[in-house]
Simulated assay, not measured.
Amino acid sequence: MAAGRLTAWLSRSSGLGRGGMIGGRVTLALDPLALRRLGRERTVVLVTGTNGKTTTSLMLTRALETLAEVAANSDGANMPDGVLAALTARPDAPYAVLEVDETYLPWVADQVRPAVLVLLNLSRDQLDRVGEVRATERDLRAAIGTLPGTVVVANCDDVLVTSAASAAAKAVWVSAGCRWTGDSTACPRCEGRVATHDRHWSCGCGLARPEPGWTLDGEFVRTPGGRQVDLDLRLPGEVNRANAALALAAAHRLGVPPHTAAARLRTITDIGGRYRTIRRSRHSVRLMLAKNPAGWVETLRVLDEDTPVVVAVNAQEADGRDLSWLWDVHFERLRGRPVVVTGERGADLSVRLCYAEVAHWAEPDPVTAIDTLPPGAVELVANYTAFRELVGRLPGG
């Protein structure tokens, strides 16, 4: 642990990185059982899914801080190295809230044996790294079946999530909505057609939407006792209200009253720079992150109408090298407003926008792209590494 902390400090001090990954990597190299040792004697909550892990984890952390100190990988380092670094940083914290990449969830869960597992959503993401989403669902289902002491809090409106969470000995079902259905038109169990009506869905093999105990209804969450909790979040969009509903259900399971948890959630104004508005010269720039088709569905819905948009796309290892997901995003929603394309793979995005009949122009440098627009508000949407770069370069980001 000391060696890992020292390595992390050296990484931060030399400006090479935040230290979360390399610190955990060193600790695991010296002690392969370190994660199991550091997870002992704590109440551990794991949060996984394709989108919303960082947001939901921060919400849960804020809620559980009303009980005691919480160890959390709030920097988004959600692979085993980052998870271990978070536990190492706060070895005496009685609670831990850890977001985990869905690919690594089975191994991490086996090590720490969580009290609660929050399963948000499942959709295609970084096909070259993660693989096909149905294989991910099968792996999660198998892992959940080996956790008899874990309560799984799951979004029952998501077909793939329900299939995986049905293996749990104890499940808490939350109706949080699911706009992206492109990966669940066929049943993950039998490949039969999934029939849907509003939020209800079913397959002839018997897999069907469970009755939820918690329900998101606009700005309110209805609890199992029939009470309504007003969210009144400072984060935009239905997707963040969905994350909040799942966070409330998980926090309640660990002893935090829903109204107390909701009050803590209202203190959150941005997630690692996302949704933050900063000033740059003549512009007011709102920073948004979108990494895959399901995430883009939600991001496009919260963009202010008629406001110019800068879209930045990279394809580094952390983003996924495969950009085929661009063709699953309904960029047609950007028609009729000024759009600037930028990032390392701006040319790929430009081709997609041409087919979507979205008028735009290209500017290789993301910061210069902002300056090409008229004074006023700007929406800036970027995928992972492009977003990280921009947050580092923009003042106040």
Rank of each mutant, 00 (worst) to 15 (best):
D31L: 05
G4L: 04
Y384S: 01
G213Q: 08
S166D: 12
L300D: 10
V130E: 12
H330D: 15
A86W: 05
T185R: 15
C190D: 14
W201A: 12
S11M: 11
V341P: 00
R189W: 00
D81N: 14
R282Y: 09
D81W: 01
L30W: 06
R282D: 13
R393I: 07
L300T: 04
S123C: 09
W180E: 14
D348Q: 09
V302P: 12
G192R: 13
L122S: 11
V297P: 01
Q316K: 15
R40S: 14
G225K: 10
L216M: 03
E219Y: 04
D31Q: 13
L235V: 01
V341E: 04
G4E: 00
Q228K: 09
A369I: 02
H259R: 12
G52E: 12
T43I: 09
L16P: 02
P338W: 08
L235H: 00
T7C: 12
N73S: 06
T43A: 10
E191G: 11
P257Y: 08
R113Y: 00
P148N: 10
A68L: 07
G149L: 03
T61Y: 00
P32Y: 12
M288S: 05
P366N: 03
L231E: 06
A68S: 15
G295N: 01
I370P: 07
R264G: 05
I144R: 08
L326D: 04
F220D: 13
L84M: 09
R393V: 08
L120V: 05
R124Q: 15
S74Y: 03
R345E: 08
L334F: 02
V256K: 13
R279P: 09
V340C: 01
G23A: 10
W361K: 11
L235G: 04
A63G: 12
L289I: 05
R90K: 15
V118N: 07
L390V: 12
H283T: 10
A109Q: 09
S175P: 13
S163N: 11
L98E: 01
G204E: 15
L390S: 02
V112Q: 01
L246P: 09
G52Y: 02
V100G: 06
L246Q: 14
D92A: 10
P293D: 11
R352W: 10
H252G: 15
Y275I: 00
D31H: 08
